[in-house]
Amino acid sequence: MHGALESGRLELPPEVMGQLMPMFLWLDRHGGIRCLGPTMAKVIGEDVIGTRFETHFKLGRAWSRREVGAGEVGATQGRRLHLSLLRHPDISLRGRAVEIGPNGREGVLLNLTFGIHIADAVRIFGLTEADFAPSDLAIELLYLREAKAAVLGELKALTGRLEEARRSAMSQALTDPLTGLANRRAFDLALDKAIAGLAHGGGAFALAHLDLDHFKAVNDTLGHAAGDHVLGCAAQILREETRGGDVVARVGGDEFVLLLRGALQSERLKALGARIIARLEAPIAVEGAVCRISGSIGIAVSSDYESHDAEAMLADADAALYESKRNGRGRCMLVRDLRPDAEVSQAG
């Protein structure tokens, strides 16, 4: 390889070979390294001239250690090579070997490139595009891998954004925009689920219907902005007086329904109703004015019903609510405590 063209024979100096094949190795007949390309020098070191090939590489199925050790390098003529680095066993290389000179007297020329671990090699050895031959498809594969990773990352991010948008849309579809409580649709879904659960051993629950007293006067005298503020205050009270497993929904202008789980004794339900009403009756300041409202509550308990009927419970809770209003407002009444002649459809 000295840069001459004689009798149809081309000889190239090592620096030209390095430009064409940055990862070439020139071995003598006994497996000693005579010359190497600039990229290969980055991989195994620049001071390896004279060292044995097998001190840097582990041979795959193309060569055996016996062949190299015995100096039979010429036997690799035209074979596909599969190698790995001894210092980095996880990094594989592949390529071909050709004999140099008559009967391989000048040794063997190996033209190598990285296998599937090219990304690791680029990272470990600090390689760039300039370290690969223009015809080497390995760098193209690396670009494809990076492009795939970028696309997959973007698709994952897009999927995340779409899922977040779906959750947001679902949340908005099930949320009252003014108070942030559940809306009628969300409550109906929760009630249907609770009713279905009763048939499969699920826990009993109470259904409370709350209507704000004197709310119309707030809207009429102070305007709808004041009314919206009062509704927000009422919603906050209901959040604070209920538990995490309960469902609180605004289902009308000043109407709220509550699905209450556990602790369904009459005394505890009445105590909860009394606390809510007491807090609702506290003065609410709105733009220099003071609003005063109250609340009337009717409560039905699922364990009081022989058949599981959401409409019957809603109707009875509504009837108990209006019984509270007829008895002076600012009261909490349970369906189970109503007079026999009250207009309810209690069963059992």
Rank of each mutant, 00 (worst) to 15 (best):
A4Q: 08
D120Y: 02
G180R: 00
V247K: 04
L20S: 01
L137M: 09
N111S: 06
S171M: 02
V16I: 15
T51L: 03
L59Q: 09
G126I: 02
L231C: 00
R261K: 14
G74L: 08
G74N: 05
P14K: 01
L59P: 00
K42E: 07
S135Y: 10
H214M: 05
V122R: 05
L20Q: 11
R339T: 09
A208Y: 04
V68A: 12
R331N: 14
R87V: 01
L127Q: 01
L20K: 02
A149K: 11
A41N: 04
L144R: 10
P38A: 04
D90C: 04
M313T: 13
I100N: 05
G115A: 08
R79Q: 10
D131W: 02
S64P: 05
E154H: 04
K148N: 14
A138I: 03
A234G: 04
K156S: 14
S294F: 09
E255S: 13
T242V: 09
A149W: 02
W26P: 01
A169W: 02
T128A: 14
V151I: 07
L181V: 07
R336P: 12
A62P: 12
G298F: 07
A310T: 07
V151Y: 04
E67I: 11
A217V: 06
A70W: 04
E163C: 01
A217P: 00
M21I: 04
E146N: 15
D318P: 15
A75L: 14
M23T: 01
T221A: 15
A347C: 13
E129D: 05
A312F: 02
A62C: 10
L338C: 14
E163P: 00
A208C: 13
E146Y: 02
D341V: 09
L338A: 14
E255A: 05
A347P: 04
G288M: 08
G245N: 13
H209A: 10
T159I: 03
A165D: 13
T76R: 06
S345Y: 04
A190M: 06
A310Y: 10
V48I: 03
P22H: 07
G273C: 10
R275P: 02
E140N: 11
F187W: 06
L222C: 04
A147P: 03
G298D: 08
A150C: 03
T51K: 05
G288Y: 12
K216P: 05
C332T: 15
M313E: 06
G8H: 13
I293S: 08
R29S: 14
G95H: 12
M40Y: 09
A75K: 00
R79N: 02
L86H: 00
M17Q: 13
L110D: 00
G328R: 07
Q19R: 06
H56G: 09
G101V: 05
G245S: 08
G203D: 07
V43F: 03
I299G: 08
A190V: 03
S171I: 00
R61F: 11
D90I: 08
G8N: 14
D316P: 04
E6T: 11
H2S: 13
R66L: 11
A234D: 01
L178M: 08
R9K: 05
W26H: 14
